[in-house]
Design a protein around this nucleic acid. Structure first.
Lengths: 201, 201
DNA sequence: GCACGGTTATTGAACGATCGCTAGGACGGA
DNA sequence: TCCGTCCTAGCGATCGTTCAATAACCGTGC
């Protein structure tokens, strides 16, 4: 036995999820077999089916977890931020980028495997994604209403900001020149410039 | 027989490529079988292997074509544009967005299937991608040198602009409210704002 | 301290389906 | 008669999934 079993309920699931995330990160959902996941988690294929009822359920679990955590991080950053629209946008973009670096693997799966979900899972994930989009959109809309952002394209700007942050998980490397915090700061700067704040900053 | 055969050399290849693009657009490379491609192209599996030596070669062909065409479109837009850095950036972003809408399916495959390529194909595609990145980077760098762009983050800005344009192929719909040209214009505006031109426009 | 029944976790082996790919021949136009 | 194109048929490998059997753990009665 690998460890005390009753002591950590759900630990078996997590080992499998971690392995699945690693594998799908490299070869995608359809490119990853249950045998790949089992080998990397150091268990047998049949054992996986004690914790998950199908490969599809594993993907759904990974994606809903990832989107939920991303939503929680940005929401929490928003609540902890100052009251100005500029500070709120900065805070949310920072959290968004930090999520897509520190949780790079799950984020990549969450961003690219929508098409691999069945109808039920897709509905769930799309709903979470819409909630996430509204976090950015509402901040920018309010900034425009209050006259502190002067962009004529608030909706397009929010979409662009979301996607430029999301794409970070496709190229950032932990052994590269930038820490998650440094990159987050830069993207916060770029995002703010895109909505054209009144004082140029 | 479907059509005069000798009259259109390479037509067989194109039918297969179109089918492969449609299929991989929905379910990805590993989620698309040779039988799927054959069925949609209205031929048999064995027939595909007369035109392509492997499934891998089909993917490589799709991706290198897509990246090459995108590079050609942005390069050509740059040459046809005015001399100012702002006009050049606008022109290239417009072309970039128009490519990712009018060639949405190939662009999506090109953007998401890097991991499905073998080593040789990946080297090829990465080289093309680097060339593409340099088109954006050089325009922004020159704008900063000349003092018409005031951003402190030219490299990050170019990456952000590339990715926010690329992501268009993941959500734009031809039956949606925006034509490729309208969306391209908006993204050109957003990209320009991000590099903070001196006169605010 | 310890045997015991019940629950949970894990296993090897195998199922039918589908995978990428190929051999060998049929067909039609030059 | 070639040559390019397409076919039927099938190869061995791998796919997701299942099942019956085994192993580990737990609270309980003694």
């Amino acid at each position: 036995m690998r460890a005390a079993k009753g002591a950590m309920p759900g630990a078996g699931r997590q080992v499998i999820l971690d392995s699945a995330i690693r594998n799908m990160n490299h070869r995608g959902y359809h490119g990853t077999s249950m045998r790949d996941i089992a080998r990397d988690a150091d268990i047998t294929v049949a054992s996986i089916y004690h914790h998950f009822k199908s490969k599809q359920e594993i993907l759904q679990d990974i994606m809903t977890r990832a989107l939920h955590d991303a939503f929680a991080m940005t929401r929490s950053a928003l609540l902890r931020s100052g009251g100005s629209s500029a500070e709120q946008l900065r805070a949310v973009v920072r959290a968004w980028v930090i999520f897509h670096t520190t949780r790079q693997s799950d984020a990549l799966v969450g961003a690219t495997e929508l098409r691999s979900l069945d109808d039920e899972g897709r509905r769930l994930v799309v709903a979470l994604r819409d909630e996430q989009e509204s976090v950015f959109r509402e901040i920018i809309d309010r900034g425009v209403e209050d006259g502190v952002f002067t962009t004529a394209l608030p909706l397009d700007a929010s979409r662009a900001i979301i996607h430029m942050g999301q794409s970070v998980c496709t190229w950032w490397r932990s052994d590269g020149p930038l820490t998650p915090e440094e990159l987050a700061e830069r993207y916060a700067e770029l995002a703010l410039a895109m909505v054209q704040p009144v004082d140029g900053r």
